[in-house]
Computed example of a mutant assay.
Amino acid sequence: MSELPALYSQAKRLTIALREGLDRLESTEVAGGSTSAQMQVLRAKFADLQRTSNEVDSVWRMHVLRESHNSRDLWKRKVEQVAEDMDSIRMALDRFGAREDRRARERQEREELLMRRQEGAAVAVQMDTEAQLMGSVQRSKTVLQEAIDMGTNILETMTSNREVLKRAQKRMLDMLNTVGLSESLLRVIERRQKGDIWITYGGMVATVLVLIMVWWFFL
């Protein structure tokens, strides 16, 4: 029985320390500060109180029959008071723990919401960039198509002019044959005809090269 008063005193000291810690915890919570570290310290002290309370109850039950009736009643009330204090502190810690868990969930939900907003903004920026790129590609295609159409028109015009030149040359040869020009003059005209043919084909090749350069530049 001699160790019972010491255990009871230890239990009371732990109870007082826990109640003071709960007061500080409540003040921190009201101020909006973090209570995680304080909760860890209080839970460790509460574990000590549970262990001490169990020891008090065990020692009292072992020695209860040796004491007088008045002493048994006194220690019974003290043991019950320690148990009641421990239950009260447990409920207070559970309430604080529930609020802390709720705040942690709310913080996590806010962080997830912020992350989703950031991801949404990144997707919007990417879509805008892709839209700008598609617009640029479409404009390049339009410019290239216009260049191809222009080159096609030039080739068609050159082909048409070639046919006109051939018909004009044929009429001129017929006229020259009619008036009886010399064979040397006919050879000069023939060389001029060949030169015109080379000029025509050279222009066609140059146009194709220009189209290829335009296509390479815009694509």
Rank of each mutant, 00 (worst) to 15 (best):
K12Q: 04
R13A: 15
L14R: 06
T15Y: 00
I16T: 06
E20K: 02
G21D: 00
L22D: 03
R24T: 13
R24C: 10
R24K: 04
L25S: 05
L25I: 09
E26C: 13
E26L: 12
S27E: 00
S27Y: 02
V30E: 00
V30C: 06
A31F: 10
A31R: 13
G32H: 07
S34C: 11
T35A: 10
T35L: 02
S36K: 12
S36A: 11
S36Y: 03
A37L: 06
A37Q: 15
M39W: 06
Q40G: 14
V41H: 07
L42Y: 00
L42E: 01
R43E: 04
A44R: 15
A44E: 04
A44G: 12
A44H: 14
A44L: 08
K45F: 08
F46H: 08
A47T: 12
A47K: 13
D48K: 10
D48A: 14
D48S: 14
Q50W: 08
Q50M: 02
T52N: 14
T52P: 04
S53Q: 12
N54T: 01
E55K: 15
V56N: 09
D57N: 14
D57A: 03
D57C: 02
S58R: 15
V59L: 13
W60Q: 15
R61Y: 03
M62Y: 03
M62N: 11
L65A: 13
L65N: 15
S68I: 01
S71A: 14
S71Q: 06
R72C: 10
L74S: 12
W75F: 05
W75R: 04
K76L: 04
R77S: 07
R77I: 02
R77G: 11
K78P: 02
